[in-house]
Amino acid sequence: MRYLCLIYENEKNYATMPKGESDNVMAEYGAFTQGIKESGHYVGGNALQPTPSATTLRVRNGKVSTTDGPFAETKEQLGGYYLINAKDLNDAIQVASKIPSAKFGSIEVRPIMEFNQA
């Protein structure tokens, strides 16, 4: 079963983080990604540009309206995700608990909705 692990953290932390520390976080992410590739959990994953780069759009009455920034202003922002394959929720929680950002941000684990092709 597939789960999407959404990584939420305060993106401002990265802006103020000393170089050595952010290198460490990058190295931890590298090792984590390598690890879940080897264990067969990895399906995909990406880091996202910070929210000032975000655009939110809506179509109302056929008209597209766009606004600057993310859909909601929150203390923690969506900063990246992993799509993983896991046996069950416990397995998914095991994997998600090792995502480096879990130590300072939070990880939302969402099962992927599977549509049966009959």
Binding site: M1, K87, D88, L89, N90, V109, P111
Partner: peptide, 14 residues
């Protein structure tokens, strides 16, 4: 059902 919470006794580590 949807998040597939397993029907099991947790492993020793958990």
């Amino acid at each position: 059902r949807d998040a597939r919470i397993p029907y099991e006794v947790p492993s020793r580590s958990d």
